[in-house]
Design a protein around this nucleic acid. Structure first.
Lengths: 240, 240
DNA sequence: CGTCGGGTTGAGGGTGATCAAAGTTTGTGG
DNA sequence: CCACAAACTTTGATCACCCTCAACCCGACG
């Protein structure tokens, strides 16, 4: 199983890539690296000359407002390239940090740029990836802007379940999630104390268990309904 | 002054485009249209075959959560293409609505696609535009997730001032803003009542006047500091 | 002159924040 | 494998920011 297999699988579900396109992606120079948990891969202000393909593990993007109040902007899983935008935006405007031990593969921007020039279908697929990113950001604005805490949490968990399912990392009712309650709070615009209380309510309602970094759902449909979750914004349906 | 001049100006500040690139953009088929205030240009669920260049006026993107709670996702001004992402994401996941009477120019996706294929520099510039969009979304997540109401408002006003300045639509201390307090509330994840009260506080502090759709700033620097505003995320500095 | 959209004001309440302390789990080094 | 520290979770008490509801005001416009 090559480093790029999760990426290729994802690109193929939504964009038509021929064998030459795939071969060209597989020929990309990649520097593998293992990164410990809670370590920055790139930071705000950096001018990276490469992008980072997440091969295994979880990472997140985040920004820090006044007085160190951190806001997580997105969660990333295998097959994602969380800093692909740095290909065209020179300076990082946020951090990318591992949530657990991760295997990543660094791809030089030069290589990506020539790949895009030679294989327009790949360029389009990568562009599309960044557009899906943006769609997820939009949904997160709604989440923190307009939903009360329990719905916010339900929405986040629903999104993660759906995305993990798409890459085969989640059964219907259970998945690994290496986040602390503090991380959840930073993703939801809440305090860790409040996240803890909301988790207790959802558990009491039989909607969600979260222990030892494992999420268990007994009734995922009900959770999605609570979170007002509609997977349209993930744009993963090949027909659309 | 052609319909695409604001767009071209914006693209050129950050990407190297040669004369042929510019000419090709100017040759794009555009269908001009005047759209009244408060009217949807595209809606969630649509599958547009064209994108919409905003030539004059203000528009916004928005999504509606449960029970009709609207969240504005971004504000758009002359030179923006608020639904450029529909070039590669078939189904709209949000609405685009005018905030006032607008002049727009519709560009068929076919034309944009062949332009991108023939002129890689233009493709890159347009890709970059969608990446800046995403960067603004990220900052908005921070805004609604981690800043108290007065800072949120200060940040939004600072962003608009900065972006309007870049296209020459704002003097240092005054600009047109065709939004109601309800619109501001929907952009900030607040209620209109609370926006009203925050506006009063900022006015009392001599930071901001907002009357008859005109924003007046007596001390823009202080406002930006209050809003924790750093224009880096707009990625408008050609050097970066 | 009446209507309508938008702005303003007031009273009261609830969601979620803050602060502080006590449990519990995890991880590390001896 | 145990001991201890650090990180994370849980609980309680109190507080405040912002919401809700409701009424009133104002200017624009027919």
């Amino acid at each position: 199983m090559s480093q790029s297999s999760a990426l290729i699988r994802k690109l193929r579900t939504t964009t038509d890539l021929d064998d030459d396109d795939i071969a060209a992606i597989e020929r990309l120079p990649m520097v593998p690296r293992d990164i410990p948990a809670q370590e920055a891969i790139v930071r705000e202000g950096d001018r990276p000359g490469q992008s980072c393909l997440l091969v295994e593990g979880f990472a997140c993007r985040s920004k820090t407002a006044d007085q160190g109040r951190r806001q997580i902007l997105s969660i990333h899983i295998a097959g994602d390239i969380p800093d692909l935008q740095s290909l065209h935006l020179k300076v990082m405007d946020h951090d990318v940090t591992t949530l657990c031990r991760c295997k990543v593969a660094f791809i030089p921007h030069d290589a990506l740029r020539s790949l895009c020039r030679e294989r327009p279908a790949v360029a389009e697929a990568l562009w599309r990836e960044t557009l899906v990113d943006a769609a997820v950001f939009r949904e997160w604005i709604v989440n923190v802007g307009r939903r009360p805490a329990p719905q916010r949490l339900a929405h986040l968990i629903s999104e993660l379940r759906e995305r993990l399912r798409l890459v085969g990392l989640s059964t219907d009712d259970e998945f690994q999630l290496p986040m602390t309650q503090l991380d959840l709070a930073d993703a939801l615009g809440l305090t860790p104390v409040h996240v803890n209380r909301v988790l207790q309510v959802l558990r009491k309602d039989g909607l969600l268990e979260f222990r030892r970094q494992v999420v268990s759902l007994s009734d995922a449909d009900r959770l999605m309904r609570l979170g007002d979750f509609d997977s349209l914004y993930l744009h993963q349906n090949p027909a659309t």
